[in-house]
């Protein structure tokens, strides 16, 4: 029971960061390997606001996310859009965007190490115990989980019941046809990329309330987000959330029962199973 709840709480956070990546890859077609660094940027910012200005992460994430949104929009507009334009095929774009976002991720880590140093950082926020079904859990994890559900639902509703959301889904299904239907594909892609970055940074802000981080931890989060996105099916918010919960549960199970040092190995186990049996994602249909 303890494993179940801890796992679900962890999975909720994973869902938040993976939703960002899912938007970026599903709509903007950019496999963003600097995604984890955006998360660390969000975490750093929340840490800074809390320790220096004593602003609660619950408020500061809403100050951070517009900045990150704009920064990601600039990155897409000026660094990634030229790659989209020059690429002749999806494969070429994938190779280029992978290398370019690797470059960005190293530069971000390098800058963060230069500015903040390579030390671990953490702070105490809402570390009060809360009792659920006889076991105690930290309040900050519950808050983070609640926020993940809130943002996930908002995103889902927005994508499915508004016009811009529908346009975004259309681009995700087929960019060429979406263009013919009068959708500004480039603008939608930039929007999706920026939105994805902002969602990931919000996730980072909440993760920092209970997890110790350092500047170079981003790649681990990228890795997990990638596995979740593939498992859930690219561009599928429902699938992403479910996949994140599955991964959270499995990781908690392996960390508790076998060894806490094997969490990435647990993620790989899921990854291999997905690749072997359902490479199109949990809800995906087989390509004909």
């Amino acid at each position: 029971m303890d494993i179940l709840i801890t796992g679900l709480l962890l999975g909720g956070i994973y869902a938040l960061m993976a939703m960002g990546l899912s938007l970026q890859y599903g709509v903007a077609r950019i496999m963003n390997l600097a995604n984890g660094e955006m998360l660390v940027v969000g975490a750093f910012a929340a840490f800074w606001f809390y320790t220096v200005a004593e602003i609660s992460p619950l408020i500061s994430v809403f100050l951070i996310s517009p900045v990150v949104f704009f920064a990601n929009w600039l990155i897409y507009r000026f660094m990634l859009q030229p790659l989209v334009k020059r690429s002749k095929s999806q494969g070429q774009l994938e190779v280029d965007s992978i290398l370019a976002t690797f470059g960005m991720s190293f530069i971000l880590v390098g800058l963060m190490v230069a500015v903040f140093g390579g030390d671990y950082f953490n702070y105490t926020f809402l570390a009060k115990p809360v009792d659920i079904l006889g076991n105690t859990y930290a309040a900050n994890r519950l808050v983070a989980f609640g926020m993940a559900i809130l943002i996930g639902s908002l995103l889902y509703l927005w994508l499915n019941f508004t016009r811009p959301g529908m346009a975004m889904r259309a681009v995700s299904v087929n960019p060429d046809a979406a263009g013919l239907a009068g959708i500004d594909v480039q603008r939608m892609s930039a929007l999706a990329f920026a939105l994805g970055g902002a969602v990931t940074a919000i996730g980072g802000g909440f993760i920092s309330t209970f997890q110790t981080m350092d500047a170079s931890i981003g790649i681990l989060f990228t890795m997990k987000a990638l596995i979740i996105v593939i498992m859930g099916g690219v561009g599928d918010i429902r699938g992403t959330i479910l996949a994140a919960l599955v991964l959270g549960l499995l990781e908690t199970f392996i960390a508790t029962v076998i060894d806490p040092g094997l969490t990435l190995a647990a993620a790989y186990l899921v990854f291999i199973l997905v690749l072997l049996f359902r490479p199109q994602g949990m809800f995906g249909r087989k390509p004909s």
Partner: peptide, 28 residues
Amino acid sequence: LATLRLSGVYFVIFTLGLAEMTRQVVTW
């Protein structure tokens, strides 16, 4: 065998964490 039957992205992602995963398993 696990990854090269699929598209290139899966391969990159799989190899990205492979060293770290192998390290965890060897340590364990």
